[in-house]
């Protein structure tokens, strides 16, 4: 039984690792919480009324265990942050040298894919527009310009662990690199109206030579 869809992008492993790391640490904390809840229930009859401890929980001495727990939790949290910030900087704040540039424009309710055309530049007159199917090369850094015509959309490629919103009126450039060729779904993850659930495209990842042939075919038409 697999939890995640198969990972096909260079940064997908970071994300999966982060999930398991947090899950395991949180799992240990879960055991402690469960113990702290269940143990008093099991031993509730043992304490006669007056044997209870009248503790108000004031001052450092009484609160020390809670301070310790908060401290441990802070350490764990900040180590998650440090671990994830690497991946976040890699995926969001930096753009590696591009091998291929494509624009994905959300529109109710399909994905418009703009290829740069023979001149290799986007938003010129020789751009080629296609719908819903995006072909990209394998093992290449792909820059994606995300924008939308009408309402908010969100590009979600689960196998590549990639998601980002498409907003009308602004261009957001993010990148992805596929490590395996194949066909992967590309769905919309932001409420965009009646056809939201039908806004399903696909990414076709092809090896370099095959990709160039296909691209030439697209440009010819």
């Amino acid at each position: 039984m697999k939890i995640f869809p198969e990972n096909v992008s260079v940064y997908g492993d970071d994300i999966d690792f982060l999930f398991w790391l947090i899950t395991i640490v949180a799992g240990l904390a879960t055991l402690i919480v469960l113990f702290l809840v269940i143990y008093p229930v099991l031993t509730r009859k043992k304490h006669k009324a007056k044997e209870n401890i009248y503790v108000k929980g004031e001052g450092f001495k009484q609160l020390k265990w809670i301070y310790l727990a908060i401290f441990v939790m802070a350490v764990a949290d900040f180590s998650f942050l440090i671990i994830e910030s690497d991946g976040w900087i890699k995926t969001q704040e930096t753009l590696p040298e591009k091998d291929f540039h494509v624009a994905i424009v959300g529109k109710q309710w399909l994905w418009e894919i703009i290829y740069p055309g023979p001149d290799g530049k986007l938003y010129t007159s020789d751009d080629v527009k296609k719908f819903n199917t995006m072909i990209v090369p394998q093992d290449a850094v792909i820059h994606m310009d995300l924008t939308a015509y009408d309402v908010l959309h969100s590009v979600f490629i689960p196998h590549a662990r990639f998601k980002f919103d498409c907003l009308p009126g602004r261009k957001i450039t993010r990148w992805v690199e596929f490590t395996k060729s194949g066909e992967y779904p590309m769905v919309c993850a932001e409420m965009c109206g009646v056809g939201h659930s039908r806004m399903v495209g696909k990414v076709v990842v092809l090896p370099q030579e095959k990709f160039e042939k296909e691209l030439a075919k697209i440009y010819k038409k």
Binding site: D14, I15, L18, F19, I22, T23, A26, A29, T30, V33, L34, D77, F80, L81, E84, S85, G87, W88, T91, Q92, S154, F156, P158, R161, F162, K163, F164, A189, E190
Partner: peptide, 23 residues
């Protein structure tokens, strides 16, 4: 605590949120 709070840690980590957001 367990299922609401701890999964908040997952989603608070922006990198994993990129995958899990709006799912």
């Amino acid at each position: 605590t367990i299922l609401g709070g701890f999964t908040g840690l997952h989603l608070g980590a922006a990198l994993f949120d990129m995958y899990a957001h709006d799912t």
